[in-house]
Computed example of a mutant assay.
Amino acid sequence: MRLIAALFAFLAFAAPLAAQPAAPAEAPVVAEARAFMSAYADALRAGDRAGIAGRYDRTGAFHLGNGRKSFESHARIQAIYASADWQPPHRFEWRDLSYEPVGADAVVIAGQFAWTPREGAEPLVYSYTALLRRQDGVLRIRLEDESTRPPRPAS
């Protein structure tokens, strides 16, 4: 009798779980975007200037952040990363990235990153949004928004 009662209890618990639909499979473009962002972080940490610039759309990219908007040609993006003005981070990490496919060949990414400019410095935390779209068979950055928190008012 205990065996039957245990069986009914198990079925009563397991039946609703079995009725739950399986989580949808991740879109292939999302898996590709995850790999892209991981390699992008590696390039930033390594200071791979050409590798970073090579991730951008060949027709150019929109850059937004902190109330600004510009469109830069791919040649200009290459020049920015080749310049001595751009310095790689001492440490870099993505935080809480979310991936939203917007078709088979594009994905929007939203999250944050922490950029530590030099040893002993506090990390700077930025919000981050990007649109990656497929170009020449690979994902490339078409739009990036990098914004920091506004400064705290002085007391």
Rank of each mutant, 00 (worst) to 15 (best):
P117G: 04
A75T: 14
G60P: 08
V138S: 12
A25G: 09
E119L: 12
Y40K: 07
V102F: 09
A53E: 05
R152G: 06
Y56V: 04
I109G: 01
A25R: 11
A5L: 13
F8S: 12
D42F: 03
V108R: 14
V29Q: 01
V108W: 10
Y56M: 05
S70C: 09
R91T: 12
A50K: 14
D85Y: 00
Y128H: 12
H90F: 14
F71E: 11
L139H: 02
D105M: 01
R133N: 00
F10Y: 11
P16S: 06
I109H: 00
R68C: 02
P151T: 07
G103T: 02
S127Y: 07
L139D: 01
R152N: 06
S73E: 12
L11S: 07
V138K: 12
E100R: 14
A84D: 14
I141E: 05
A39D: 14
A82K: 03
A14G: 06
A31M: 11
A75D: 15
P89H: 03
S155D: 11
A14S: 13
F36H: 04
R133A: 01
P28L: 02
E93P: 00
Q78T: 13
E144I: 03
G111V: 01
Y81W: 08
V102T: 14
L139Q: 00
L124K: 13
R95F: 06
E119Q: 14
D85K: 12
D136N: 09
F113P: 03
V29H: 03
S83M: 03
D48E: 08
A35N: 04
F113H: 15
P150Q: 11
W115R: 05
A15N: 05
A25E: 13
D48P: 11
Y81H: 13
A110Y: 04
L44A: 09
G65C: 07
D96R: 15
S155Y: 10
F71R: 13
P28R: 02
L143P: 01
Y56F: 15
A79S: 13
A19R: 15
E119R: 12
S147L: 04
G120W: 10
G60K: 03
A121N: 06
E122S: 13
Y126F: 15
Y126R: 10
R68E: 13
W115N: 06
A5C: 10
A39C: 02
L7K: 00
A35S: 11
A15G: 09
G67S: 07
Q87M: 06
F8E: 08
F71Q: 12
R49Y: 07
S155G: 14
A41E: 14
E100A: 08
L97Q: 02
V125W: 00
S70N: 13
E119H: 13
I52Q: 03
V102H: 09
H74S: 08
E72V: 10
R95I: 11
G111R: 03
E26H: 05
R134W: 07
R149G: 11
R49Q: 08
V30G: 00
H74D: 10
S38H: 08
A110Q: 09
I52M: 10
E93L: 06
Y40Q: 12
I141M: 11
P24L: 02
D42R: 12
Y81V: 02
G60E: 04
P151H: 07
I80K: 00
L64F: 10
S155A: 15
